[in-house]
Design a protein around this nucleic acid. Structure first.
Lengths: 214, 214
DNA sequence: TGGCGGTTAAAACAAACGTTTAAATTGTTG
DNA sequence: CAACAATTTAAACGTTTGTTTTAACCGCCA
């Protein structure tokens, strides 16, 4: 078993287990036994558990943000005015295609993103912001220019509403899908759910801004 | 210090600490030392840490759902047809007023709700569903009847989108507010944010449903 | 006052945690 | 093949965790 194998096996196991149980609830012993490697391998290859967590995020956030950046650049040159639907569909398409091509589960991606936000883990938030903050701001900026009539503060709140709707519903996709399947017998694929989410997000972003005075 | 005092002090400390750090990240020793009581008091009065977590949720979910039920019943008899805005405003008003009257922080309420969803904690999810599932279904049903033209599956997905937007953005309220204040110098109160969230949620729920065929 | 249930207190419990150590093994290079 | 660096292994480290135990304390009623 070569070095690359060990590192990769640890990352694979950690990614799945973190998404299923959270960071604190997943012990290094569970990770290493699942990966079939020695307990000390994590500290040897990554230094600490915190750095392992960051490495898990780095492995899928780096290709994701680079693809997203490229897609945004392509959109910016292609047409004169950015369309909201195009932007959101870019986001979804990049997230889905990029991960699916690696044989990774996009739902796990969303679940981890949700964990990054909700589990305190200050070091992780700092790591993500410092590493991927620029990509995030670029995407938010593109979205903002497609919504010129919405004042900045309202726009940013709605952006967080949209992120919340996305991360929350997709990170719990399996649970929600199971409920709906039981109640209505209707199966939902991830693609279908994104096809439902996109227009809902557009409607939320473009909703008329109520005037202060009434 | 009477028995009631001890139980209450533990619940108060646990509520704050859980909301700040999560369940696993908060030890019983931190809770009891913050509350100024003996370590063994938690196991004596609540039985276990799991039951303490459930008790924290029970303390604010029970008055919340009973108020919500009453408000929904009032709305149902008052007018002929339920208005979407009224329903959402009921939800928000009940959540805010009910908690504020107890001197508790509504943001903490949302933060805990978010944790209940995202931190796996299977026992907590089971506890909440079994205890408050009826209230949830009643509210969802009221919302559904106010949206007769939306097919059930689309409606339920949008309901989860809405819940995600609400829980996610309000549970991170302080962090988001701090960012917006730094970037735009604009302060946002919780009431203002709910006033932004309500129309955005309505827009999302009432968005035109794209037809399958194109 | 004496005793009794309810509560608090200090201490200890075993288990699990992340991390470190030091030896054994492997792979590579001269 | 020899030698050195990289990696894996088993074992132990010290902490921290939730929980339990046993004794002390308290208020109250007979």
């Amino acid at each position: 078993m070569s070095q690359l194998d060990t590192v990769q096996r640890i990352l694979d196991a950690a990614e799945v287990l973190f998404a299923e149980r959270g960071f604190t609830e997943t012990s290094l012993r569970t990770i290493t036994s699942t990966a079939g490697v020695n307990l000390a391998a994590v500290n040897y290859h990554f230094g600490s558990k915190k750095e392992l967590i960051q490495a898990v995020f780095e492995r899928f956030l780096t290709p994701f943000t680079t693809s997203l950046d490229a897609e945004l650049a392509r959109l910016a040159t292609e047409e004169g005015s950015l369309q909201l639907d195009d932007l959101l569909q870019s986001l979804y398409r990049v997230a889905l295609a990029g991960l699916a091509s690696q044989g990774r589960d996009p739902k796990r991606f969303m679940r981890l993103l949700g964990l990054a936000y909700t589990q305190s883990q200050g070091h992780l938030r700092r790591f993500i912001v410092s590493r991927y903050g620029d990509s995030y701001r670029r995407f938010a900026g593109s979205l903002a220019t497609a919504l010129p009539h919405v004042d900045p503060v309202t726009f940013y709140w709605r952006l967080y509403f949209m992120l919340g709707a996305t991360v929350f519903s997709l990170s719990s996709f399996d649970a929600i899908e199971a409920i709906l399947r039981e109640d209505f017998g209707a199966e939902s694929s991830l693609e279908e759910t994104l096809a439902r989410l996109a227009p809902a997000a557009v409607a939320m972003l473009t909703a008329p801004v109520p005037t202060e005075g009434g």
